[in-house]
């Protein structure tokens, strides 16, 4: 569990951060303008040297949601297995965030996955291209307005017949 000193340090440094607790897990919600500063502070001054995951939630059709995409960073402190969740929100059109690959090299593939599935652009990422889906895929399929059965991508494959050898 993250110590209360750390939480207080974050709150003192970033007064606009909303820190909530649920079952001894802390979540820090910050505006998108300062998310990079918060993560840099956590890495350089609080010892969170590990990026565990970057992921995203699409709040389209979600009752009472103010913003469309919530981007979630999970950072870890290896000395005592602390985990902290940092969350920020971005909106259409062109949801964009600054990259955190300058803090953690390991964020490269995580950001590429979020770009692939949700279409969140990470400014400053050296190689932001699709990681899971084929290069020529057009959509971002984990967005809620993308149909579950797709837009025909699974059918647009050439057919191999018996007489082709």
């Amino acid at each position: 569990m993250v110590s209360s000193e750390t939480i207080q340090a974050i709150q003192a440094r970033f007064p606009s951060a909303e820190i909530t607790e649920f079952r001894k897990q802390f979540r820090v919600c910050v505006p998108r303008e300062i998310v990079h500063d918060v993560l840099r502070f956590l890495k350089d001054e609080c010892g969170f040297t590990l990026i565990i995951d970057i992921t995203c939630v699409d709040y389209l059709y979600y009752p009472k949601a103010k913003d469309r995409f919530g981007v979630v960073y999970i950072v870890g402190r290896p000395e005592n297995a602390d985990r902290l969740i940092v969350k920020t929100f971005v909106n259409d059109p062109e949801p964009t965030l600054p990259t955190v690959t300058d803090l953690w090299e390991g964020a490269r593939w995580l950001e590429r996955e979020v770009w692939d599935m949700f279409g969140i652009r990470f400014e400053g990422h050296a190689n932001l291209r699709r990681i899971l889906l084929p290069e020529d895929f057009q959509d971002h399929p984990l967005r809620k307005d993308y149909p579950l059965q797709g837009r025909g991508e699974r059918h647009n494959i050439p057919v191999v017949t018996r007489d082709m050898g």
């Binding site: 889906l133 399929p141 797709g150 991508e153 057919v159 191999v160």
Partner: peptide, 14 residues
């Protein structure tokens, strides 16, 4: 029955 999974390989190979 999702966007990525081919709905039967016999659509594309014998």
């Amino acid at each position: 029955d999702t966007y990525a999974v081919v709905q039967g390989i016999d659509r594309f190979i014998p």
